[in-house]
Computed example of a mutant assay.
Amino acid sequence: MRGYIRHPDAIPVEVVPVDNDMLPDSAELPGLCCKVERPFARGSAVRFTLPSMPVDFTGIGRISCCCRHGDSWLARISLSSEQALYHLRMVEQLCQIEAYRHCVSEHQGRQLNAEQAAAEWISRYAADFDQYFAMS
């Protein structure tokens, strides 16, 4: 079974509540696990966006769990369709590549452009994406 994709903390994700009518009751597929600034009640419908990423992506899901995580909260957002999960996986791989690019710059002093970072990340992590970046 696939797990929730752990969104990198270095890339902001905006999570806001929405009307429960915007989401079918069937939001039971694993989706996104991300850091949030405030707690959300289990079962709440939310919209999430990635304001700092160049891709225009908005997802809608339901909070399956929200727990204290240091000075913030860690929320698991369930999705309602395989198509939504597929799109999330593609966007999250872009987020992981961007986080990798920043990490290489900070820890190794190497400046990679987006294409170089993508090539390195894909060769190292893409085949095992679920193993490295998913939480059960």
Rank of each mutant, 00 (worst) to 15 (best):
T58Q: 12
I11F: 09
C34K: 00
V13T: 03
C67P: 08
L29F: 03
A99D: 04
G61F: 00
I5H: 01
H107R: 15
H102D: 15
L32V: 05
Q93H: 06
S136P: 08
W121P: 00
V13A: 03
E120H: 05
A117V: 02
V104H: 09
L23R: 02
H107W: 11
R124W: 10
R2W: 08
Y4T: 02
P17M: 14
P17A: 13
K35H: 13
E37L: 12
S80L: 07
L50W: 07
P39R: 08
G31C: 01
V16P: 02
F57H: 05
P17I: 11
T58A: 12
I97E: 01
D128G: 06
W73S: 08
P24I: 12
C33E: 10
L112W: 07
F40D: 02
Y86Q: 12
E14F: 04
P51D: 11
I122N: 06
A27S: 05
W73R: 07
V18W: 07
P54T: 14
M53I: 13
N113D: 13
C67M: 14
R124T: 11
R2N: 13
M53W: 05
L112Q: 09
P30M: 03
H107P: 11
M53Q: 12
V36A: 04
R101K: 14
I5V: 09
L74K: 04
L29R: 03
G109M: 06
P51W: 04
Y86P: 06
R68N: 13
K35C: 09
F57M: 07
S80H: 09
D56A: 12
D19E: 10
V36I: 12
N113Q: 10
E14K: 04
A10R: 14
C103D: 13
V91F: 05
A45T: 01
S123R: 12
C65R: 10
E106W: 11
P30Q: 03
C33H: 03
M22F: 09
S26L: 14
N20C: 12
A75Y: 01
C33L: 10
Q108I: 13
S72W: 13
I77D: 00
A27E: 01
D21Q: 15
A84D: 04
S80Q: 07
N113W: 10
G109E: 11
C103P: 06
W121C: 02
R42G: 09
W121I: 01
E28H: 13
A134K: 01
A10G: 11
M135K: 10
V36L: 07
